[in-house]
Amino acid sequence: MMINFILNGQKVVSTAKANERLLDILRTEFACTGVKCGCKEGECGACSVIIDGKLVNSCMVAMGYVESCTVMTIEGYRKTERFAVLDTSYASVSAVQCGFCTPGMVLASECILAKNPNPTEAEIREGISGNLCRCTGYNAIVQAISIAAKEGKGLW
């Protein structure tokens, strides 16, 4: 029996076993290498994806769990208008350094804004608190999300 789900807007079927990690399958079977592996323990957020509108660590998800779900990775999200706003805002404050946390951080940003289009700084920080970044000290990322909230009026 195969596992059916929607990946970045496309119906897909995976031959993976139900106990395999979504992270590994996304990277190998579906070539979504924008999903990064930082720890495989749910502690860093580099592998964040959005399942049914909610941010999750894909290393903590067994393939069987995603049956009939909608999964969005950076590969799908980057085609959206909302991404374009975040892209610009991240660039404007140079919030990307080594880049390894960035795809996960961008998806976390999306989930913050989707829930609350006008978040406070504290809410932004809370929203990315599961996404470790060792380079930036987080200030630029927080600023970028706050700029996106202002610039992306109506999109969220």
């Binding site: 999903v35 980057r78 960035t102 795809p103 961008v106």
Partner: peptide, 15 residues
Amino acid sequence: SIKKKDHEAKINGSA
């Protein structure tokens, strides 16, 4: 400041 040379590929996951 200017847009970083490595920005695009890193933020869109293609790096």
